[in-house]
C-alpha cells in the first residue's frame, strides 16, 4: 500500500466510513454551490471604502478620467516623489503613451534591480482596500513585487465590494484560476523586530493606485 492509501485509509477509519465512497455527492454539491459565508455589514459605497481602506494601509490613491491620462499621472507621481522616471510595465500596458509623458517604460519581465513597476489589475476589493492580480503572459506577477515602487491602474468600475465578488467575476470572465492569484493590500511590511511596523520588507516600499473612470 502506498503512503497515500495509508493516510486516506486512516482518515476513512477515523470518519468511520466502511468503504471508500464512490459517491462524492455531499462535497460536490457544496463545491458546486460554493455558498457565501459571513460577510461584514455593507454600509459603504465601494469606491469610497476602497480609497479609505487602501490609504489606511499606506497606499496612495488618485483618480483620473481616462486611461489616456494615466501616463501623465504616473509621471507626476514619480517626479513629485523624486523617483526614477523609468521602469517596467505589464505588456498589457505597452500601448499607453509613456514616451509622450516623458517616461521610459519597458514592457519586459521585471528584474531584481528595477525601481518602478506599473501594472493594471484584475479588480479591486473595497472591503479591505485590496488589489487583485492574475498572473499571465501579459500580466506577470513579478512586476508588482520586485520594484521598490509599484503603481497600479484600477478601473473604478471594477471595484467590487467583497472578495467573494472578485471570485464571482473571475469565474464569469475566466472560468478557472490562473497560475497565481495575488491579493495586494499596500506596501510590503514586517513587524518582526520588536513588533515595529516597517515598510518595504521584501516587496515594494510604496504602492500608488491610479483609479480610472
Amino acid at each position: 500500500m502506498s503512503t497515500r492509501e495509508n493516510i486516506l485509509g486512516r482518515v476513512r477509519d477515523a470518519l468511520k466510513r466502511k468503504v471508500s465512497p464512490q459517491d462524492t455527492a455531499s462535497i460536490d454539491a457544496h463545491i458546486a454551490a460554493h455558498p457565501l459565508g459571513m460577510q461584514p455589514l455593507r454600509d459603504w459605497e465601494p469606491e469610497l471604502r476602497f480609497r479609505a481602506r487602501a490609504e489606511a494601509l499606506a497606499s496612495t490613491v488618485e483618480k483620473v478620467a481616462s486611461l489616456q491620462s494615466v501616463p501623465g499621472a504616473v509621471a507626476r507621481y514619480l517626479v513629485v516623489n523624486n523617483l526614477p522616471t523609468g521602469g517596467i510595465c505589464w505588456p498589457s500596458l505597452r500601448k499607453l503613451d509613456w514616451i509622450g509623458a516623458g517616461l521610459g517604460m519597458e514592457d519586459r519581465p521585471a528584474r531584481g534591480d528595477d525601481l518602478v513597476g506599473v501594472t493594471g489589475c484584475f479588480c479591486a476589493v473595497a472591503e479591505t482596500g485590496t488589489l487583485m492580480f492574475l498572473s499571465g503572459p501579459d500580466t506577470p506577477a513579478a512586476a508588482s513585487l520586485l520594484p521598490e515602487t509599484h503603481i497600479a491602474i484600477v478601473e473604478a468600475a471594477r471595484i467590487v465590494p467583497f472578495m467573494e465578488d472578485a471570485w464571482a467575476l473571475l469565474r464569469a470572465e475566466r472560468g478557472s484560476l490562473p497560475r497565481a492569484v495575488n491579493f495586494v493590500s499596500g506596501p510590503s511590511r514586517t513587524a518582526d523586530i520588536e513588533q515595529t511596523v516597517t515598510m518595504g520588507a521584501h516587496g515594494p516600499y510604496r504602492v500608488h493606485i491610479i483609479l480610472v473612470g
Binding site: 481602506r53 494601509l57 519581465p109 521585471a110 472591503e127 479591505t128 485590496t130 498572473s135 499571465g136 503572459p137 506577470p140 506577477a141 513579478a142 478557472s176 484560476l177 490562473p178 497560475r179 497565481a180 492569484v181 495575488n182 491579493f183 495586494v184 493590500s185 499596500g186 506596501p187 510590503s188 511590511r189 513587524a191 516587496g203
Partner: peptide, 24 residues
C-alpha cells in the same frame, strides 16, 4: 493573528508556470 483586516499579500497558486508566462 496581528489585528490586520487582511495581510499584505494573499497568494493562491494553482499549478506551475503556464505557456508563455514569463515568471513562475
Amino acid at each position: 493573528a496581528t489585528g490586520q483586516a487582511i495581510t499584505n499579500y494573499v497568494s493562491l497558486h494553482t499549478g506551475p508556470k503556464r505557456l508563455e508566462e514569463t515568471d513562475g
